[in-house]
């Protein structure tokens, strides 16, 4: 009665700390890996320059400061954001098997970007189209869900997401057929597979406000999100305006997913698998699930991206690698849970 934290809770704190350290170590390691030879010494030199606000000196420092470090930082941010929105969606939809794109945000963002590529727009507008497409798709799904009353609102949302996502997928296929097979088709294919290869120096900074805007309410509402996971009726009986709260959480998670998808393309599996692992480690309470997902997601994506850029001279699209790692893990989860009553 006297202790504020239960033993499990205290253990979770240590695990989260450990995960943060592991992710930092991965990020540090990622800085040393890459096609361009960079010495450890140059890493410290760059760090010193960064602290003192100097421009990079030699080529090694320039590679670190303008290419590699921005990419590692973006990887941390993208992985963390995908895992956080996955955790939010899973808790919200009371289903540990949903991913951040369950409401069609990736399909919508994909459609937006593909349309931008089709119109031969500059990259900034392609990203803007992707962002807008992701948000618009989820808005359409939400609109459908609110206009259909008298059914389980969560079920209607998920089914709406499936339907609208499929429509967006069809539209993408249509554009692919119409696209110029020499200029546009390869660009579309690469974009849909997701990649951090074209991350530029300030890209991570550019999406940081949007990600923070989505993340802060999730942190603040951590306890209420737990209550929301008991279902619509119970949450309302416990005194929460469940509908409004759910809309807010969806908006936050969508904002985060749409911004990272706009930057790096569609990267699957992270938002599905990472929250799952985090839950196995620290339990379902969102106050622990969220930080654990953030820590694991960031580290995992940097790790996979490091593989993607170092396996061969040619980039392996990261979406392929996350699927290769994620799919077997998912099957393992199913296998492990087969006799589990829970």
């Amino acid at each position: 009665m006297t202790s504020v934290l239960s033993p499990a809770h205290r253990r979770a704190r240590w695990l989260i700390l450990l995960a943060l350290c592991a992710s930092s170590a991965i990020a540090g390691f990622a800085l040393t890996v890459g096609a361009y030879p960079v010495t450890t010494e140059a890493i410290f030199r760059s760090l010193a320059r960064l602290v003192s606000g100097q421009e990079p000196g030699d080529m090694q420092e320039r590679v670190l400061m303008t290419i590699r470090a921005p990419r590692v930082l973006a990887g941390l941010l993208i992985g963390a954001a995908l895992a956080a929105s996955g955790a939010a969606y899973q808790t919200l939809f009371r289903n540990p098997l949903v991913s951040p794109d369950v409401l069609g945000v990736s399909a919508g963002a994909g459609l937006g970007a593909v349309f931008g590529i089709f119109l031969s727009l500059p990259i900034f507008f392609i990203q803007l189209f992707a962002f807008a497409g992701g948000l618009a798709t989820v808005a359409v799904v939400a609109l459908i869900a609110t206009s259909i009353r008298g059914r389980d609102p969560v079920l209607v949302l998920v089914l709406g997401g499936v339907v609208v996502g499929a429509l967006a997928g069809a539209a993408i296929s249509l554009i692919k057929i119409l696209a110029d097979p020499y200029d546009q088709l390869p660009a579309i294919t690469f974009w849909l597979l997701g990649s951090l290869s074209s991350i530029r120096q300030n890209d991570a900074l550019a999406i940081l406000p949007a990600v923070a805007l989505g993340l802060v309410p999730l942190i603040l509402l951590r306890w209420r999100i737990d209550v929301l996971s008991t279902g619509d009726e119970e949450a309302r009986a416990l005194g929460l305006p469940a509908g409004a709260l759910r809309a807010l959480v969806i908006a936050c998670a969508t904002l985060m997913t749409a911004s990272v998808v706009a930057l790096a393309g569609v990267i699957g599996w992270v938002g599905l698998v990472i929250p799952h692992i985090a839950r196995m480690l620290v339990g379902p309470a969102f106050s622990r699930l969220l930080p654990m997902s953030l820590a694991l997601g960031g580290g995992y994506l940097v790790l996979v991206d490091t593989l993607a850029r170092s396996l061969a001279r040619i980039e392996t699209p990261i979406g392929i690698l996350t699927a290769i790692v994620g799919a077997p893990f998912f099957i393992w989860l199913l296998w492990r849970g087969r006799n589990d009553a829970a």
Binding site: R94, S229, G283
Partner: peptide, 10 residues
């Protein structure tokens, strides 16, 4: 029903 393994206290 709980979709997730919350503790009784939670």
């Amino acid at each position: 029903s709980s979709a997730f393994p919350f503790t009784a206290e939670e």
